[in-house]
Design a protein around this nucleic acid. Structure first.
Lengths: 238, 238
DNA sequence: ATCCGCTCGATACAGTGTACACAGAAGGGC
DNA sequence: GCCCTTCTGTGTACACTGTATCGAGCGGAT
């Protein structure tokens, strides 16, 4: 029986491997790809590069993934599998853990923030598990199902938005070999100075002159997250 | 199309004068690119495609943009220039207008959500203007500058995260020629059914069975936004 | 009239994703 | 023992990408 390409990727993977040959496997492919992306960024992920990394012909991985999109899904699932949310906490602690866990994951794997849209949507088993755990933490609070899912998605949206920005900054810094926030500011200074010289942004200029923790990304993240959780609290406690 | 050196001298001489010069400009380039991306998505944006759209040689636009990244920045600035935030509102209405304006912009130009990270960071004049207007709306409330910027960035992060998801969904739908949410659900049903058959997601399954407004994206967006704004309110009103 | 500099054209190149046909090994039935 | 199907990985090829480079011809300053 031929491999049924119309079946979902995940179903195909869970079918018993009819292959005693086994120099390649979805696992090996995924972790090799993740290793490359972690070390050199998403743009280093190339079917050829992946193949050489696995000491295999360029087209070989196509036996396991139907294309690059599939590969990216596999990578996402691979790293999300490492995320464990502590159970038995209250709703707020659970959402906080969800946010912090996702943040950590996206810091460790900066490429997560630059995936193409169809991959961002991918409903992989590990992601389903995260959703399941979060929904469970929100269960039994008297919320209707739509609100439960809405809360989960809102936190997820905030985390993704914030981390998309943060990891873009960090990718930029490492691309320019900047290691401190001061170096970053120095790098951006000429552009910023030019903007300010137009005189169109007086309030922004005032911010630049008086702010003190301009680049505390962790603090920024916490501020927004706490605001969001506070707002959710008002809807949870009946 | 090649300069045919073997053609008779006289034919070569009578060929139309190569250029009524100033055919290109940053404006023309930006709006042509935006038009293509709006109609066919970001992946249709190709230096060659852009050139043919402008009836010009592939390398011609490089006189105005130093590469594709520059082009994308130009496009971002071009569409953000159309965003006007009403002035004279209170802080909450202003933040709400910022969120809704950005949402509308990202719905109108779905490619905004799939830009590469360095372009997402781009500090273009139009984006600076949006930041300026928002900061102005937050001024005079007794907030310290860091908190002002933090609030602006939090709202922006939420909007980007939420819309990144939403416009990925819509890109997927239009790619599969699905027009209604029911069609979308039908398309995803086999995958979802497979996940559910594993029995690993009981709470998710319960959600699927009992939820009623599963795909009300506007409602989801509003829920999270209102939560966030409520949380901010607690920090604004001292 | 001459020259310079800017704008745009033509060509070329390395690198991308992936379609396609083929080689060889694994294991079951005779 | 053999053969034959089936799966795995190989080799080659193609259309397409971003962009470096060189050169042609116009406009304006000298």
């Amino acid at each position: 029986m031929a491999t049924d390409k119309s079946a979902p990727l995940w179903e195909r993977l869970e079918r018993p491997a009819p292959a005693p040959r086994q120099t390649l496997s979805a696992q090996r492919i995924a972790s090799a790809a993740v290793a490359v992306a972690d070390a050199e960024g998403l743009e280093a992920i190339t079917m050829r590069r992946l193949a050489t990394e696995l000491s295999v012909a360029p087209m070989a991985p196509y036996r396991y993934v139907s294309g690059k999109d599939d590969l990216l899904e596999l990578m996402v699932d691979h790293v999300y599998a490492g995320m464990r949310l502590p159970a038995g906490l209250g709703w707020r602690e659970s959402l906080h853990a969800l946010a912090m866990g996702t943040r950590e994951l996206m810091l460790e794997h900066r490429w997560l923030a630059q995936l193409p849209p169809q991959t961002k949507l991918a409903l992989t088993p590990s992601r389903m598990a995260v959703a399941e755990q979060t929904l469970t933490a929100l269960d039994g609070l008297g919320l209707d199902p739509d609100t439960m899912m809405g809360i989960f998605r809102s936190v997820d949206a905030y985390v993704h938005g914030a981390m998309s920005h943060d990891s873009a900054v960090e990718a930029f810094m490492s691309a320019q070999s900047l290691s401190t926030n001061d170096e970053l500011r120095t790098e951006l200074a000429p552009l910023m100075a030019w903007h300010m010289r137009t005189g169109r942004y007086p309030t922004y200029q005032h911010y630049l002159r008086t702010a003190t923790r301009k680049d505390d990304r962790q603090g920024q993240f916490d501020l927004g997250l706490n605001c969001l959780l506070d707002g959710i609290a008002a809807r949870v406690t009946i």
